[in-house]
Design a binder for these strands. Structure first.
Length: 121
DNA sequence: GGTATGACTGTAT
DNA sequence: GATACAGCCATAC
């Protein structure tokens, strides 16, 4: 498959199992596309692990060079915008990539939605 | 080891 | 159709 190791971190290798998978998938998200936590979690095998996906990102947020701005909730809402450098950084970044965001919600969500199980698989 | 919290999701009211 | 509650998995205290 694709390059599994993109850049090890100083974190222990125990919990990195799930985390690394999340980061990898997020990094594989093409520009102008976004995905949901549930999609990533489901791709990892834990559909109910959506929280862990978000938590994993929140734990590292931009520290791992991961485009977290491409990851939104199931409604296409920029739930993480508040955790970014600035509450508008996420939206600005998405729009910069060609994603239309309005009222902190991704427009054309169905079209902008990127499913790792379909696109990446 | 148990309790509380969390960038979520789905079902129920 | 919108709001409320419960479930799931992992980390932190």
């Amino acid at each position: 498959m694709n390059a599994k190791k993109v850049g090890k971190v100083q974190e222990p290798n125990s919990k990195n199992d799930f985390f690394d998978n999340v980061y990898e998938v997020v990094r594989l998200i093409p520009p102008g596309r976004v995905t949901s936590y549930g999609a990533i979690a489901a791709y990892l095998g834990s559909k109910r692990g959506a929280r862990m996906v978000g938590w994993a990102m929140g734990n590292s947020h931009t520290q791992y060079n991961v485009p977290a701005h491409r990851v939104v909730n199931r409604n296409g809402l920029l739930s993480a915008k508040n955790l970014f450098e600035t509450p508008t950084a996420m939206q600005e970044r998405l729009e910069s990539e060609g994603v239309t965001v309005k009222d902190d919600v991704v427009q054309n969500w169905q079209q902008t939605f990127w499913d790792p199980e379909k696109e990446l698989l």
